[in-house]
């Protein structure tokens, strides 16, 4: 860790920089292939993803992180990133590198698949607000109760696939529910 400061938008949380001990440029396409919720920019190169509520960007020699809870939290996430990079590097022969930019669905696209009842059951005022928070990882799909009523079975399937594709966990019991 080389720099640490309060978050601009959220002074309860911290943002920070950390340096890599080794250049990870070569591993980044492999990381992109493995991490389903990452956005990869091959021209940077950089790889951006959410680790729960924290925003992380990997560069070949640097990591930036925002919205970490405290320094212990930041060290824990850095330790997790280090282990993940080492693991992917070790398995790189069995991974097909992905050099392409993968775009995440937009909040509007997710909104399109929601039941759009504006029921507020999830705690948000509108379904669009829920879609934004879902994308940020601040809400989970099972909080959308209308989606789990029988009439929305088809939407549910599609939504669960989207959620899984952007890398958030779909509880198994929800995935297999009728």
């Amino acid at each position: 860790m080389t720099y640490i400061a309060p978050c601009i938008a959220d002074p309860d949380k911290i943002r920070l920089f950390a340096e890599m001990s080794t250049d990870i440029g070569e591993v980044m396409p492999y990381l992109n292939a493995v991490m389903k919720n990452a956005t990869y920019n091959k021209n940077g190169p950089n790889l951006t993803f959410m680790k729960e509520f924290r925003l992380v960007t990997l560069y070949p020699r640097k990591i930036t992180m925002a919205k970490a809870l405290n320094t212990t939290d930041a060290w824990q996430v850095l330790s997790w990133i280090k282990d993940m990079i080492n693991d992917v590097h070790e398995r790189r022969d069995s991974i097909t590198p992905d050099h392409e930019l993968r775009s995440r669905p937009t909040a509007l696209q997710i909104y399109g698949w929601l039941p759009k009842t504006n029921c507020k059951d999830c705690g948000e005022l509108t379904c669009l607000a829920f879609a934004v928070k879902l994308l940020l990882g601040q809400k989970s799909i099972e909080q959308c109760s209308p989606l789990f009523s029988p009439e929305h079975a088809e939407r549910r399937e599609a939504m669960l696939e989207i959620v899984a594709a952007i890398g958030y966990e779909v509880p198994e019991k929800l995935g297999s529910q009728d």
């Binding site: 309060p6 002074p11 309860d12 911290i14 809870l69 405290n70 320094t71 212990t72 939290d73």
Partner: peptide, 17 residues
């Protein structure tokens, strides 16, 4: 004092702070 979350008036909820 906990270093982080200094803006809060009460002790932070997050561990270990």
């Amino acid at each position: 004092g906990t270093g982080g979350e200094s803006i809060l008036e009460h002790q932070p909820n997050h561990l270990p702070d």
